Structures are given as structure tokens and as C-alpha cells.
Simulated scan of single mutants.
Amino acid sequence: MKNYRYLERRNLMIRRIGLWIGEIAAAILLAFLVIQFCFQTVTVHGDSMQPAYYDGDTVLVNKLDYRFGSPKRLDAVILELENGSTTHYSVKRVIGLPGETVKIENGKIYINNKELKGFSEEEILSAGLAAYDVALEDDEYFVMGDNCNNSEDSRVSNIGNIKRSQFVGKITGTIHKAKRQ
């Protein structure tokens, strides 16, 4: 009789431990899937997105938004950029959409010959490649930093137009604001 109770308790304990291990494994798998395919945090480096995002800010990136939809004008986004053999992430804002023509003239941005309102009140000092019409293909976007006079973006040849596949996700909010100087 004692052996039977001991075996019963032991089997119950083994089942409980198995359930705990299964629940922990499921939680780890779920966390991995959420981070890999749904959301991610990124720390901003540099001043190109001021005043929206400062160096050291941590932002939440929604990766799902662009799995089911397309980037929209003025979305703040995370891009995966390759420079030779290295890959880095960059925070920019979508300015031009596929099929549009972008031009910067007299310090202002023009989309299909109409002035873009709501992006920046600051006069753009360097038009770069956009000094002439930049025609975007079906899979291309034109991006810029909010701090347009201190940003390396689609206006420079080593970045240029951004392909749809280079979008990591849309910034949905700031998790941690860095100390402002």
C-alpha cells in the first residue's frame, strides 16, 4: 500500500514538472516569435530624427504593420541598410511613395510637382540627388530624416531610393526617452 501511494505521488510530481517545463518552453517560444515577427525595440543613434527621436531614445517597432500593409507617407520607420559587407539599421521618415516623383527645390520638397506640407518647416539646405526629379519605381520609397540638414538619407547616393524589402517596421512609440542635453 505504501509503495502504491509513493508511486502515485511520484508520477503526479513528474507530470507537474513536465507541465511546468512545457509551459516555460511555450512561453519562451511565444516570446521568440513575438520578437522575431511582431515587435522589436531599437535604440536610436544619431541626431538625424530630431526633434521626434533623440540619440539614445528606445523606440518600439511594429513589424506586423508592413507584413500586411505598405508604408505610408510620413511614417517613421526602421530600415535595414547594407553598406558593402556590413548591415545597419536606420531610423527615417517616408517621404515619397512608389510611382511618385520627388524633387527638392528652393528648400522645399515637391511630390509630383506639389509641395509636401506637414513634414518640416525647416528649409532644406542640401537637395542632393533630389535637386533633379527622382522617379520612384513600383517597389521604391524616398526617405529622409526629420533633422533634414543633418541626415544621410535618400538624397545621398550610398542610400538612394529604398526598396520595400528594406523596411523592418513602423515605429509605434517611444519606450524610453534619453536625457536631453
Rank of each mutant, 00 (worst) to 15 (best):
L7P: 04
R10S: 14
R15Y: 10
R16S: 13
A27H: 07
L29N: 02
A31H: 10
I35C: 12
Q36T: 09
T41R: 11
T41N: 13
V44R: 03
H45C: 12
H45R: 15
G46C: 02
Q50P: 08
A52Q: 14
Y53G: 05
T58E: 08
T58R: 10
K63E: 01
K63Y: 03
L64T: 03
L64H: 01
G69W: 04
P71M: 00
P71S: 02
V77T: 01
L79S: 07
N83V: 10
G84R: 05
T87I: 12
S90E: 11
T101Q: 03
V102S: 07
K103C: 12
K103L: 12
I109G: 01
N113S: 11
K114H: 15
S120H: 15
S120N: 10
E121P: 11
E123G: 11
A135N: 13
E137L: 09
E137N: 11
E137G: 15
D138W: 03
Y141V: 09
Y141M: 08
F142P: 02
F142L: 03
V143G: 03
C148R: 15
C148L: 15
N150I: 07
E152H: 14
E152S: 14
R155E: 09
N158R: 13
I159M: 04
N161K: 15
I162L: 08
R164D: 07
S165R: 15
F167H: 10
V168K: 12
K170D: 11
G173D: 12
G173N: 02
I175A: 14
H176L: 15
A178T: 04
